[in-house]
Structures are given as C-alpha cells and as structure tokens.
C-alpha cells in the first residue's frame, strides 16, 4: 500500500476555481429554493391581509391588485360585528383560561404522583394511560356526547371545559421533566419538614417552568382552534367558540360573498395566535417537536 495516489496533471488553480463556482452555484440554488418556498408559505397570509383591506369592488377586479388602492379599515369593524367576534372572543377566552388552569393543576399533581411517589401498580397504570394515546379522539366523542347530554350540560361552558381537562400527553411530558429533578431534593425537603404541596410549588414547578409554559400555550391554542366538539355540544350564541363562529358567519351558499370582510374576520381570529407565536416561539417549538399533535 506504499504507492500513493499521484496527482493528476490538473492545473490546481483551475480545480479550485471550478470548485468555487460550484459552491457558489449550490449556495445560490439553496437560497433560491428556500426563498421561493418561504414566499409560497407566506403568500396566503399576505393575501389575507391585503384582501381584508380592499373594497369589495377592488377585490372583484378582473386584474388583481397586490396592494389595496384604498385601504378599508372599516372591513375590520364590519367583520367584528357581522361575526359577533366580541362574544366569540369572550367565550373562547373563558373556556381557554379556565380549562388551562384546571388542566395544569391536574397535570402537575398526576405527574408528581407518577414521578416521585411509590405506590402499588404505578407502572402498570402509567402504561395503561400511555396506551390510550393510541386511540383516536373521535372514538370517545360518540359516548361523551351521550354522557354530557344525560348530565344536562349541553350549551354550557362546563361541557367545553371538563371532558378534555386530562391530557395523558401533558402528564407524560411533565413526568419526564420531573424525573430529571434529583430525588435527593425531595428527600432533603422531607427532612426539613416541607410539605409535598409546598415542595411542588417551590421546587418542582419552578424547575420545570419551560414545560409548563409549553403546555399552557398548547392548551390555549387547542381551545382557540377546537372546532368539532364545540359545534356538537355548544352551538348556541352564548357559548359558541371562535372557530365555529367564524365558519358559521361565512357560509353563504349563494349570493355575493363579501370576501374582504371575511378575510378581515379571519385576520382578526389569526392575530392572537401570531402574537403568542412572536413572543413565545421558543416554548411553542419545544412543545410541538415533542408532541406531533396540533393544538
């Protein structure tokens, strides 16, 4: 193996020049591809915003305009009243906030029990819980619909909050986080006579704050985006949720659709999500990459 590759009689300058050109070309196509894809991804948002600011006449022009000739903020006011977004926002916020808070309490307590306490059947029980994650939610809906009807919960806030308070996935996520906190901390707290709840609140919760924030955001987004269940059980004016209300307000099957107003309504519904995203991107991305579940 002592013979070595002999350099071919290539002009080294030429070789490196060709390589440089190749590298620049690859870079160029990489950026071109990414920017093109980014534009495609962004286009619906752009179209939503400019359409929401156009007059109906401009929207219906044969040749589309890419910036509104006359900016119509009034579309937003109209959207707000047409879809009674105020009531919808209010309903959704109540359901979202209450269910998130309760859900966090239940999740923290359960995750603590699974992570730190020893009791008979703990692992079996945890395994069973994880197994339920396999089952599609639609399977539960059929019976739950009957259950809430029997309980007389139809068209209440309760029906939107209680059935989905327990998320096995959140318990799993938080338990994994709790397990990483050394058990010695718990034992030390016991020696000092700290109660479980105080320990939970003072040590475990602060140490797993990022996970808790992720859970909060996902749960809030879930309320904001939920559609099927609310439509089934709470489709009255007083309790209707935002997504359902939006779809209901714009389902003309005939006549002239006022698209600019519709787009304004869509923009208003989307805005809170974007704001949350802008400020809490890190937590959303961290939670999402582990879940694969939307909302």
């Amino acid at each position: 193996m002592s013979d070595t590759i002999t350099m071919k009689e290539k002009n080294i300058q030429q070789v490196s020049a060709a390589q440089k050109t190749m590298q620049i070309l690859v870079k160029f196509f990489t950026y071109a591809f990414l920017i093109l894809m980014a534009l495609i991804v962004l286009f619906p948002f752009y179209w939503m915003i400019i359409s929401s600011l156009k007059t109906l006449a401009e929207y219906r022009l044969n040749v589309p305009t890419f910036f509104p000739q006359q900016i119509m903020f009034s579309n937003y006011a109209e959207a707000f009243t047409t879809a009674s977004l105020g009531q919808l926002f209010y309903n959704t916020m109540i359901v979202g906030v209450v269910s998130t808070l309760l859900s966090l309490v239940i999740t923290v307590l359960s995750a603590f029990a699974f992570a730190r306490l020893e009791f008979k059947g703990r692992d079996t029980m945890f395994g069973l819980l994880l197994a339920t994650m396999m089952i599609p939610g639609e399977l539960f809906t059929i019976t739950n619909y009957a259950t809430v009807t029997q309980l007389g919960w139809m068209n209440t806030y309760r029906v939107l909050i209680i059935p989905f308070l327990v998320s096995v996935f959140y318990i799993y996520l938080l338990r994994q986080n709790f397990m990483q906190i050394p058990n010695e901390l718990y034992l030390a707290a016991k020696v000092d006579g700290t109660s479980d709840l105080k320990y939970l609140w003072k040590v475990m919760v602060p140490l797993s704050l990022p996970t808790l924030i992720s859970i909060t955001i996902l749960k809030m987004m879930g309320s904001w985006n939920s559609y099927i269940w609310p439509r089934l059980v709470a489709n009255d004016e007083a309790h209707r949720m935002i997504t359902n209300g939006l779809r209901n307000a714009f389902t003309e099957t005939s006549g002239d659709v006022n698209y600019p107003v519709q787009m304004a309504a869509v923009a208003l519904v989307s805005a809170p999500l974007f704001l949350v995203f802008v400020f809490l991107r890190k937590y959303i991305m961290a939670g999402v990459s582990r879940s694969g579940i939307k909302g």
Partner: peptide, 16 residues
C-alpha cells in the same frame, strides 16, 4: 505544499 504542489487553495477531497 505536498511535495512540490501548492495545495493551499485545494479543497480537502483533492488533497489525497
């Protein structure tokens, strides 16, 4: 230099 070849500008895969 590798031998008498100036390889300063040569990329890794061509240096052998």
């Amino acid at each position: 230099f590798f031998g008498d070849d100036d390889v300063t500008e040569l990329s890794t895969e061509n240096r052998g």
